[in-house]
Amino acid sequence: MIPAEFNYARVSTLDEALTLLAQNEDAKILAGGHSLIPAMKFRLIQPPLLVDIGRIKDLSYIREEGGQIRVGAMTTHYQIEASDLLKEICPLLPECAGSIGDMQVRNKGTIGGSLAHSDPAGDWPAAILALNAELVAVSKNGERTIKAEDFFVDLLTTALEPGEILREIRINKPNGRTGHAYMKMHHPASGFAVVGIAANLSFNGNNKCKAANIGVTGVAAKAYRATGVESALTGVNLDDASIGAAAAHATDGADANGDLFASADYRRHLAEVYTKRAIAAAMKSVPSA
Protein backbone atom coordinates (compact mmCIF):
# COMPACT_ATOMS: atom_id res chain seq x y z
CA MET A 1 0.00 0.00 0.00
CA ILE A 2 1.60 3.19 -1.24
CA PRO A 3 0.25 6.59 -0.21
CA ALA A 4 -0.37 9.31 -2.78
CA GLU A 5 2.50 11.72 -3.40
CA PHE A 6 3.05 14.51 -0.92
CA ASN A 7 5.66 17.07 0.02
CA TYR A 8 7.49 16.67 3.29
CA ALA A 9 8.90 19.31 5.59
CA ARG A 10 10.72 18.54 8.81
CA VAL A 11 10.69 21.48 11.19
CA SER A 12 12.86 22.10 14.20
CA THR A 13 10.68 24.68 15.96
CA LEU A 14 6.99 24.98 16.70
CA ASP A 15 7.03 28.40 15.07
CA GLU A 16 8.21 26.95 11.75
CA ALA A 17 5.43 24.38 11.91
CA LEU A 18 2.82 27.07 12.60
CA THR A 19 4.08 29.16 9.66
CA LEU A 20 3.79 26.18 7.29
CA LEU A 21 0.31 25.37 8.61
CA ALA A 22 -0.79 28.97 8.15
CA GLN A 23 0.47 28.93 4.53
CA ASN A 24 -0.92 25.50 3.62
CA GLU A 25 -4.51 24.99 4.64
CA ASP A 26 -4.55 21.28 3.75
CA ALA A 27 -1.21 20.39 5.34
CA LYS A 28 -1.24 17.71 8.03
CA ILE A 29 0.94 17.49 11.10
CA LEU A 30 2.99 14.28 11.29
CA ALA A 31 3.61 13.26 14.93
CA GLY A 32 4.05 9.52 15.63
CA GLY A 33 2.20 8.79 12.38
CA HIS A 34 0.36 5.76 13.68
CA SER A 35 -3.07 7.06 12.72
CA LEU A 36 -2.08 9.36 9.87
CA ILE A 37 0.13 6.99 7.87
CA PRO A 38 -2.39 4.10 7.81
CA ALA A 39 -5.09 6.56 6.66
CA MET A 40 -2.75 7.79 3.91
CA LYS A 41 -1.92 4.23 2.84
CA PHE A 42 -5.61 3.48 2.43
CA ARG A 43 -5.83 6.82 0.58
CA LEU A 44 -8.59 7.93 2.90
CA ILE A 45 -6.68 11.20 3.00
CA GLN A 46 -4.16 12.64 0.56
CA PRO A 47 -2.57 15.67 2.21
CA PRO A 48 -0.36 17.71 -0.14
CA LEU A 49 2.13 18.48 2.63
CA LEU A 50 3.23 16.72 5.80
CA VAL A 51 4.82 18.86 8.49
CA ASP A 52 6.96 16.50 10.60
CA ILE A 53 7.16 17.79 14.18
CA GLY A 54 9.03 14.70 15.39
CA ARG A 55 12.34 16.51 15.82
CA ILE A 56 11.09 19.59 17.67
CA LYS A 57 12.90 19.72 20.97
CA ASP A 58 10.84 20.32 24.11
CA LEU A 59 7.60 18.74 22.91
CA SER A 60 8.33 15.48 24.67
CA TYR A 61 8.33 15.71 28.47
CA ILE A 62 6.51 14.75 31.65
CA ARG A 63 6.82 17.17 34.55
CA GLU A 64 5.12 18.62 37.61
CA GLU A 65 4.53 22.35 37.53
CA GLY A 66 2.22 24.60 39.53
CA GLY A 67 0.34 21.69 41.11
CA GLN A 68 -0.27 20.25 37.66
CA ILE A 69 1.09 17.39 35.63
CA ARG A 70 2.23 18.60 32.25
CA VAL A 71 2.79 16.23 29.37
CA GLY A 72 4.25 17.38 26.06
CA ALA A 73 2.18 16.47 23.01
CA MET A 74 5.00 14.43 21.42
CA THR A 75 5.50 12.23 24.48
CA THR A 76 5.14 8.61 23.37
CA HIS A 77 2.73 6.15 24.92
CA TYR A 78 5.74 4.14 26.11
CA GLN A 79 7.33 7.14 27.85
CA ILE A 80 4.08 7.61 29.77
CA GLU A 81 3.71 3.88 30.46
CA ALA A 82 7.25 3.74 31.90
CA SER A 83 7.18 7.03 33.85
CA ASP A 84 7.95 6.47 37.54
CA LEU A 85 6.70 9.98 38.32
CA LEU A 86 3.30 9.29 36.78
CA LYS A 87 3.01 5.87 38.40
CA GLU A 88 3.33 7.67 41.69
CA ILE A 89 1.20 10.77 41.19
CA CYS A 90 -1.25 9.91 38.38
CA PRO A 91 -1.33 6.15 37.77
CA LEU A 92 -4.31 6.34 35.40
CA LEU A 93 -2.02 7.75 32.69
CA PRO A 94 0.54 4.89 32.67
CA GLU A 95 -2.28 2.35 33.06
CA CYS A 96 -4.04 3.72 29.99
CA ALA A 97 -0.78 4.05 28.04
CA GLY A 98 0.14 0.41 28.68
CA SER A 99 -3.13 -0.80 27.18
CA ILE A 100 -2.71 1.00 23.85
CA GLY A 101 -2.12 -1.06 20.70
CA ASP A 102 1.07 -3.04 21.24
CA MET A 103 4.69 -2.46 22.25
CA GLN A 104 5.81 -1.19 18.84
CA VAL A 105 2.84 1.16 18.52
CA ARG A 106 3.48 2.50 22.04
CA ASN A 107 7.12 3.17 21.12
CA LYS A 108 6.15 5.47 18.27
CA GLY A 109 2.62 6.76 18.84
CA THR A 110 2.19 9.98 20.83
CA ILE A 111 -0.45 11.22 23.26
CA GLY A 112 -0.87 14.49 21.36
CA GLY A 113 -1.24 12.79 18.00
CA SER A 114 -3.81 10.39 19.38
CA LEU A 115 -5.87 13.16 20.99
CA ALA A 116 -5.73 15.42 17.93
CA HIS A 117 -6.82 12.50 15.74
CA SER A 118 -9.76 11.74 18.08
CA ASP A 119 -10.33 8.20 16.90
CA PRO A 120 -13.67 6.98 18.28
CA ALA A 121 -11.89 3.86 19.58
CA GLY A 122 -8.75 5.62 20.86
CA ASP A 123 -7.85 5.06 24.51
CA TRP A 124 -6.53 8.48 25.55
CA PRO A 125 -9.79 10.42 25.20
CA ALA A 126 -11.43 8.35 27.97
CA ALA A 127 -8.55 8.95 30.40
CA ILE A 128 -8.22 12.63 29.53
CA LEU A 129 -11.96 13.17 30.11
CA ALA A 130 -11.91 11.29 33.42
CA LEU A 131 -8.97 13.41 34.62
CA ASN A 132 -10.59 16.73 33.62
CA ALA A 133 -7.49 17.59 31.63
CA GLU A 134 -6.85 20.87 29.86
CA LEU A 135 -5.33 20.87 26.41
CA VAL A 136 -3.05 23.68 25.31
CA ALA A 137 -3.36 24.65 21.65
CA VAL A 138 -0.97 27.06 19.99
CA SER A 139 -1.32 28.99 16.73
CA LYS A 140 0.11 32.11 15.10
CA ASN A 141 -2.42 34.06 17.18
CA GLY A 142 -1.11 32.74 20.49
CA GLU A 143 -2.13 30.08 22.94
CA ARG A 144 -5.41 28.91 24.45
CA THR A 145 -6.46 26.10 26.74
CA ILE A 146 -9.38 23.84 25.91
CA LYS A 147 -11.17 21.73 28.51
CA ALA A 148 -11.18 18.02 27.73
CA GLU A 149 -14.98 17.95 27.74
CA ASP A 150 -15.02 20.64 25.02
CA PHE A 151 -12.18 19.11 22.99
CA PHE A 152 -13.88 16.11 21.36
CA VAL A 153 -16.44 17.47 18.91
CA ASP A 154 -17.41 14.60 16.61
CA LEU A 155 -16.00 11.65 14.69
CA LEU A 156 -12.28 12.42 14.11
CA THR A 157 -13.07 16.05 14.88
CA THR A 158 -11.71 18.14 17.73
CA ALA A 159 -12.00 21.74 18.84
CA LEU A 160 -8.59 22.47 17.28
CA GLU A 161 -8.94 25.20 14.67
CA PRO A 162 -7.10 25.19 11.32
CA GLY A 163 -3.60 26.46 12.00
CA GLU A 164 -3.55 25.21 15.61
CA ILE A 165 -1.27 22.57 17.06
CA LEU A 166 -1.85 20.71 20.32
CA ARG A 167 1.21 21.49 22.42
CA GLU A 168 0.61 20.21 25.95
CA ILE A 169 -1.78 18.27 28.17
CA ARG A 170 -2.32 19.58 31.72
CA ILE A 171 -3.86 17.61 34.54
CA ASN A 172 -4.48 18.76 38.08
CA LYS A 173 -2.51 16.53 40.38
CA PRO A 174 -4.94 14.15 42.11
CA ASN A 175 -5.01 14.67 45.87
CA GLY A 176 -6.91 13.28 48.83
CA ARG A 177 -8.41 9.81 48.72
CA THR A 178 -8.70 9.14 45.03
CA GLY A 179 -8.79 6.02 42.90
CA HIS A 180 -8.42 5.51 39.16
CA ALA A 181 -8.76 2.71 36.67
CA TYR A 182 -8.99 2.14 32.93
CA MET A 183 -10.80 -0.98 31.76
CA LYS A 184 -11.22 -1.86 28.12
CA MET A 185 -12.21 -4.64 25.82
CA HIS A 186 -9.34 -4.88 23.34
CA HIS A 187 -10.14 -5.45 19.73
CA PRO A 188 -8.14 -8.66 19.33
CA ALA A 189 -6.37 -7.63 16.12
CA SER A 190 -5.85 -3.88 16.35
CA GLY A 191 -5.74 -3.45 20.12
CA PHE A 192 -8.16 -0.51 19.84
CA ALA A 193 -10.90 -0.18 22.46
CA VAL A 194 -14.15 -1.84 21.44
CA VAL A 195 -15.25 -0.17 24.67
CA GLY A 196 -12.98 1.60 27.15
CA ILE A 197 -13.97 3.13 30.48
CA ALA A 198 -11.76 5.41 32.57
CA ALA A 199 -12.90 6.04 36.15
CA ASN A 200 -11.54 8.74 38.43
CA LEU A 201 -13.21 8.71 41.86
CA SER A 202 -12.58 10.65 45.04
CA PHE A 203 -13.85 9.58 48.44
CA ASN A 204 -14.63 10.94 51.85
CA GLY A 205 -13.21 9.18 54.90
CA ASN A 206 -15.44 6.17 54.37
CA ASN A 207 -16.54 4.64 51.09
CA LYS A 208 -18.80 7.58 50.28
CA CYS A 209 -18.01 8.87 46.80
CA LYS A 210 -17.28 12.61 46.88
CA ALA A 211 -16.86 13.08 43.14
CA ALA A 212 -16.82 10.82 40.09
CA ASN A 213 -15.52 11.36 36.58
CA ILE A 214 -16.17 8.65 34.04
CA GLY A 215 -14.74 8.83 30.51
CA VAL A 216 -16.13 6.52 27.83
CA THR A 217 -14.48 5.64 24.51
CA GLY A 218 -15.28 3.17 21.76
CA VAL A 219 -19.05 3.46 22.13
CA ALA A 220 -20.02 6.48 20.06
CA ALA A 221 -18.59 8.76 17.34
CA LYS A 222 -16.59 10.60 19.99
CA ALA A 223 -15.51 9.95 23.54
CA TYR A 224 -17.78 11.40 26.21
CA ARG A 225 -18.27 11.85 29.95
CA ALA A 226 -20.91 9.50 31.35
CA THR A 227 -22.63 12.20 33.38
CA GLY A 228 -25.53 9.91 34.29
CA VAL A 229 -23.12 7.49 35.95
CA GLU A 230 -21.25 10.34 37.63
CA SER A 231 -24.32 11.84 39.27
CA ALA A 232 -25.58 8.41 40.35
CA LEU A 233 -22.25 7.78 42.14
CA THR A 234 -21.79 11.19 43.77
CA GLY A 235 -22.61 11.29 47.48
CA VAL A 236 -23.37 7.58 47.57
CA ASN A 237 -21.83 4.74 49.54
CA LEU A 238 -20.41 2.49 46.86
CA ASP A 239 -21.34 -1.17 46.97
CA ASP A 240 -22.32 -3.73 44.34
CA ALA A 241 -25.92 -2.47 44.22
CA SER A 242 -25.14 1.23 43.90
CA ILE A 243 -22.34 0.61 41.38
CA GLY A 244 -24.64 -1.59 39.29
CA ALA A 245 -27.41 1.00 39.36
CA ALA A 246 -25.00 3.77 38.33
CA ALA A 247 -23.39 1.73 35.52
CA ALA A 248 -26.80 1.27 33.91
CA HIS A 249 -26.48 4.92 32.81
CA ALA A 250 -23.18 4.37 30.92
CA THR A 251 -24.66 5.01 27.48
CA ASP A 252 -27.44 7.49 28.41
CA GLY A 253 -27.82 9.92 25.53
CA ALA A 254 -25.09 8.22 23.46
CA ASP A 255 -25.67 7.07 19.89
CA ALA A 256 -23.86 3.71 20.04
CA ASN A 257 -21.86 2.53 17.02
CA GLY A 258 -22.49 -0.85 15.48
CA ASP A 259 -20.00 -2.55 13.19
CA LEU A 260 -18.98 -6.02 12.02
CA PHE A 261 -17.22 -6.72 15.28
CA ALA A 262 -19.76 -5.40 17.80
CA SER A 263 -23.38 -4.38 17.31
CA ALA A 264 -24.70 -1.23 18.98
CA ASP A 265 -26.60 -3.37 21.54
CA TYR A 266 -23.48 -5.36 22.36
CA ARG A 267 -21.46 -2.14 22.77
CA ARG A 268 -24.08 -0.75 25.17
CA HIS A 269 -23.92 -3.99 27.14
CA LEU A 270 -20.11 -3.90 27.21
CA ALA A 271 -20.16 -0.26 28.34
CA GLU A 272 -22.29 -1.14 31.36
CA VAL A 273 -20.16 -4.17 32.30
CA TYR A 274 -16.84 -2.32 31.86
CA THR A 275 -18.16 0.69 33.78
CA LYS A 276 -18.87 -1.58 36.75
CA ARG A 277 -15.41 -3.12 36.45
CA ALA A 278 -13.68 0.25 36.15
CA ILE A 279 -15.47 1.64 39.22
CA ALA A 280 -14.66 -1.47 41.26
CA ALA A 281 -11.02 -1.34 40.17
CA ALA A 282 -10.80 2.39 40.92
CA MET A 283 -12.12 1.72 44.46
CA LYS A 284 -9.49 -0.97 44.96
CA SER A 285 -6.75 1.42 43.90
CA VAL A 286 -7.53 3.93 46.66
CA PRO A 287 -4.60 3.97 49.07
CA SER A 288 -5.65 2.68 52.49
CA ALA A 289 -5.97 5.52 54.99
Binding site: M1, R10, G33, H34, P38, Y78, Q104, A189
Partner: peptide
Protein backbone atom coordinates in the same frame (compact mmCIF):
# COMPACT_ATOMS: atom_id res chain seq x y z
CA UNK B 1 0.98 -3.50 5.90
CA UNK B 2 -1.47 -2.11 8.45
CA UNK B 3 0.63 -1.94 11.67
CA UNK B 4 -0.91 -5.08 13.11
CA UNK B 5 1.21 -8.15 12.32
CA UNK B 6 4.69 -6.93 13.34
CA UNK B 7 6.58 -8.82 10.59
CA UNK B 8 8.31 -5.55 9.63
CA UNK B 9 9.56 -4.73 13.16
CA UNK B 10 13.00 -3.11 13.31
CA UNK B 11 14.91 -1.19 15.97
CA UNK B 12 14.95 2.57 15.35
CA UNK B 13 17.46 4.20 17.69
CA UNK B 14 16.91 1.23 20.00
CA UNK B 15 13.11 1.28 19.91
CA UNK B 16 11.14 -1.54 18.27
CA UNK B 17 8.86 -0.01 15.65
CA UNK B 18 6.85 -1.20 12.67
CA UNK B 19 8.71 -0.09 9.56
CA UNK B 20 5.56 -0.26 7.42
CA UNK B 21 4.09 2.62 9.43
CA UNK B 22 6.92 5.03 8.98
CA UNK B 23 8.39 6.91 6.04
CA UNK B 24 12.08 6.54 5.25
CA UNK B 25 12.46 10.34 5.47
CA UNK B 26 11.41 10.19 9.13
CA UNK B 27 14.39 7.94 9.84
CA UNK B 28 16.91 10.41 8.42
Amino acid sequence: ETSICGACTILLDGQAVKSCTMFAVQAD
